[in-house]
Every structure is written in structure tokens, then in C-alpha cells.
Design a protein around this nucleic acid. Structure first.
Lengths: 229, 229
DNA sequence: GCGCGGATGTGATCCAGATCATGCAGCACC
DNA sequence: GGTGCTGCATGATCTGGATCACATCCGCGC
């Protein structure tokens, strides 16, 4: 299902490919295919070969470890503009996580060859790629720190604060909407759904937040930030 | 304490710089300085500016999170040939971990500028850098998985097996030497020293390993691998 | 060979968070 | 207006691993 024309215009808006010359974009587009995936579809499993990497155009994808026993731990929840699978593609290794689509989505799949070729040609592209990997690495270290040095409550607070950081600091508080079901977010934070639920209610009981379905209202950002110690 | 001549010959043997042309090596060397650091010296703290990245020539360095309360969690233990600090350098962000020297060491410090310049010039170098970052990312995801999906015992077994994987599979078993004190290794595995000690003794009690100081003798690799479930 | 400090072993106890079990609310689909 | 699903809350209980508190061991300088 290759559709170079459409893919091209999407590509042009992905951070990674912005400012590429038209001919470069054409070459990339030639190796790119659109992937429509309905909710709950699995894009790849751990162990599958990585022939390229994915970009989310619209929709939502989760990356997760899945144990032999079926229980899973969500590594990340990805939305429009975000990409995944690059690292594993560069190493020419099988995927280490499983990617599952959370809501009906459109993705682009860029083949390895296109990226490798472009790296040879355009140092700016290489820089962009390096920047992307570095950012990922940085975020991952942040998660590692959170998981090993902070309590569940602290992780949730951190997550809420992070999720709302660029948003308008209205003085009536801030509204944060969880990107996925509570179960998925809980797992992303390395918590069980039950524990997540309890902590949310505890924070609500202390007047720090209000929860209505997936939307969390933070009454006072600073008070939430300076909580618990 | 810049010493281009010596640094050059070290650089030539670092995986990252292997196969670079002599003039490229010269340019890098011009921006590289040797750093001698005695045991327990801190190379940088979380929050310090990252002006470049480090390579271990000989010796050993640990990277760790340090909480306000003084307790730490070791992220990695690095030996000769390994480098660290690249990701943070590329993002032009302060360090997120603290680096402390474990035994008297010699390091190289390569300045940002040298790397950025070289990236422009040599796509092979960019590829090498990308490969390095990808590997790091991959390993980190492995740690994340271990910490969130495996028990302490499983993490220790995994660590032992990984540490001996390329070594000679003598049929009398394999000898693994812990790279640092048990306290440091324990923290690396996200365990307390006490817990680590107990698990080691438990494994020894089951006849799977023998521990004598820092050296661990694995009687039967396959039996160790297929333990616990 | 003595004393000292860092690195360990071991027991007793504690606790955050997981598990198990159950109820229930929405919401789509006959 | 059931009937079945998926998502969520909440109570009761369990447990891996952390903490605290000592006792040791071992190398090293003097």
C-alpha cells in the first residue's frame, strides 16, 4: 500500500524530516508506506525483525514488554508526530518490545535503506537522528530514575506535572487529560491499576486534584509539586 | 593537561574512532584531553554542564543517581574502551547522573566541538555514533525490563549469565568476577547489599554457584539459566 | 601484631505495593 | 431491556524486598 504522494506531505511535517530538500524527501517517500491500523492491532511483537521504523501520523500506539505469562508493562505511549523503532533498526536486531495500536491510527513505515542512504548524504539528517536518539535515551534514564528512586505517589505527581508543563497555567488550576485508559497509564508508571486508583483518590482526598474519568484537574500546581517529601 | 600525542594513540584504539583517517584523528585529538583521576574522585555531578564526553582508557567509573538524601542507585559500571555522556552532550543539557571513579583511572575527555565538526565531515563517524547511542538505548530498555518484570533473583542470574556470555564455556563451569564491590553491583541491579548477599547465598545453597569474594563460580550455566520459573 | 575502616554476613522487623476477590457503572449491540 | 463487554473502584490479604541493628572479616598502615 505505497502512496508516495500522500506520504510525502506527511513526512514533510514530521520533525525528523523537516527542512529536508525536496529531492531528499522524495527519496525517503519512495521507501515509505502508509499503514492503517485499527484499535488493538499489533504492529510487531518482540522478536520480530525490524525492517524500518514507524511514525505516528494520527492515532496512538503503545510499546510494552509482554511476559510469557501474558502480563505486560507499558514502556511508552506515543501520539502524532512521534516515532519509534529506530534504535533497533540501526542495530539490525529484532524488536525488544511489542507495539500495539490503542485507537484507530495512521502510521508511516520508513524502510531501513532509505534512512541509511540519507545518513550518508545529509549530515544534518544524521544530526537530527542523533538528537532524537539522545532525547529518547535521556527520557529513558528519567524513567529508570523514577522507577528506582521514587514512590508510586511521586511518579504520578511527576507524570501529571510533566504532562501539563507546557500547557497554560490558568490560575484556576490546570486540566490534564490522561492519554489512555487508567490501566495503560498505570502500567506506564509501573503501578497496578488498583494502586494507581488508590493513589489518585488519596491525592483527591487531600484536595490536590480532582478526577473525573480521564481528566485530572490540578488545583494548585505548586502545591502538588511540593508534596509528600 | 592536553597531551595530543598520547591521546591520539589511545583514541585510535577506541571503537568509536577506529578507522578514522589520520587527519580526522588529529582534529579530534586536538580537542581531547587526558584526565587522570584517583579512586573516588567525582568527574561530574548531576546538574553540571556537559562540555563533551568521556572515554575510559583504563580504570573504572560508575554512573549513578544520587538523591538529596545521599542514597544512590548505580546506573552503570564502565570499564576500558567504554564511553559515557554523549547523549547529554548532544542535547546540550546538564548531566542527569553523577560520575564517580571507582579505581585510579585514566580517561579521555573529548570536547563537544570536535564531535560536532566531525559529524559534519564524516558520515561514517555519524553512523558509528548512532550505533553507539542505539546500543545504549537498547541496553537501557533491557534494564528497564529487568527492573519492572523480573525478581531480584532473576536479575542476578541474568547479570551473571550476561557477564560470562562471551567467556570460555569450560565444562567445569565458568568463573565470573564481579567488576566492583558487592554494594555497587547490588545497586546496579536495583537491590540492597543485604538482599543481594542473601540471594547469592541462596543460589549457593542450591548448588548453582559458589562465591569466593568477588569471584562467582557458575557450576552449570544451563542449569542456572533455567532456574526459578 | 595491633588497631582501624571499609566491605560483608545475618537476623528481626517493617512496609509499599502486588494479588485476589467482588461489585458496579457505563455503553454498545442485538 | 436484557446480555455482555470493558473499565474502574474498593476491601482484605500477602509478600518481596527494604530497613535497622549488629557481628565479622579482611587488608593495610604503622
Amino acid at each position: 500500500m505505497t502512496a508516495p504522494i500522500n506520504a510525502r506531505s506527511f513526512l514533510a511535517n514530521v520533525p525528523l524530516f523537516k527542512e529536508l530538500a525536496p529531492d531528499e524527501l522524495d527519496r525517503i517517500a519512495a521507501f515509505t508506506q502508509q499503514v492503517r491500523a485499527p484499535r488493538s492491532e499489533i504492529l510487531f511483537h518482540r522478536g520480530d525483525e525490524a525492517k524500518g521504523f514507524h511514525i505516528v501520523v494520527f492515532g496512538q500506539v503503545k510499546l510494552a514488554f509482554v511476559s510469557a505469562h501474558g502480563d505486560e508493562k507499558v514502556v511508552d505511549i506515543l501520539g502524532p508526530g512521534q516515532s519509534f523503532g529506530e534504535a533497533v533498526m540501526f542495530m539490525e536486531r529484532p524488536h525488544v518490545v511489542t507495539a500495539q495500536v490503542l485507537v484507530d491510527s495512521l502510521l508511516l513505515h520508513v524502510q531501513r535503506e532509505a534512512v541509511f542512504d540519507e545518513l550518508e548524504r545529509d549530515p544534518r539528517f544524521a544530526r537530527r537522528m542523533i538528537a532524537g536518539l539522545s532525547r529518547r535515551l535521556h527520557d529513558l534514564i528519567g524513567d529508570l530514575e523514577a522507577n528506582s528512586m521514587r514512590s508510586g505517589t511521586q511518579r504520578i505527581i511527576g507524570y501529571l506535572l510533566h504532562a501539563c508543563s507546557p500547557s497554560s497555567a490558568q490560575d484556576g488550576g490546570i486540566e490534564v487529560t490522561l492519554p489512555a485508559t487508567k490501566g495503560v497509564v498505570a502500567s506506564r508508571l509501573n503501578l497496578t491499576l488498583e494502586h494507581f486508583s488508590r493513589i489518585l483518590h488519596e491525592l483527591a482526598a487531600k484536595g490536590l486534584i480532582e478526577v473525573r474519568g480521564r481528566s485530572v484537574h490540578i488545583r494548585d500546581v505548586d502545591r502538588l509539586r511540593g508534596f509528600d517529601p
